[in-house]
Design a protein around this nucleic acid. Sequence first.
DNA 1: GCATTAACCACAG
DNA 2: CTGTGGTTAATGC
Length: 226
Amino acid sequence: MKSTSCSSCLLKSKAVINLGDNELDILDKSCVQATFDRGETIFKQGALSSNIIYLQTGLIKLMIKGPNRVQILRLKKAPCYLGLPTTMGDKINNYSASALEKSTACFIDMNTFKELLRINPAFSYEIIIELCKNELEQFKRCVTLVQNQIFGRLASNLISFADDIYSSHEYELPLNRNELADLVCTSRETISRILSDLTKERIIEANGKHIKIINYNMLKEISRKG
DNA sequence: GCATTAACCACAG
DNA sequence: CTGTGGTTAATGC
């Protein structure tokens, strides 16, 4: 299935750049590339996990089944590693990942990955950096979700789509209203209402999945104050 | 009490 | 799959 070798790959991660030729060969032997269409599951909560996944291109969502409903943990945009916590931290996946747009990913055998961590400190260092950045992002998101009211929670996410994912004040939402609700912990109805309220206030324009941020500063203010 | 927030339900495009 | 309206429960003046 693999069209290129790891050594000639143009989409190397920051960690893999530090690997020598020998180490790239080791990686090459247990690395398989796959592509996913929108909606396809990359890995599933409850299943045995034995791979580290490097998302080369695309956008995915991580979700976890809570006591009552699904919770979208976060969206992740390539390039990034997927499943580090769930593969290294447990034998079973603690959450699922599915593609929000056409994505490509490399599946790396966990034992090979562990071996690379052991033999190459520069590689390990980059992995730790990525993990730490992720944790900080999660902490921030946690505070926003717990302490802000719904306007603030949704505003934060609309801003994060614009700044972190699409680098534009105008974009197509990768999620429907229900998924948006799962992302900011509310109901589908409330999402509808808030999007139309924000449109009435001329802070954004929302037409179906098309979002245009008109008053970025105001939206930022809402996300800060909750 | 009264106002606000947000969930749940129902129903219509 | 979405948007809206009515109802209701919880919380805070």
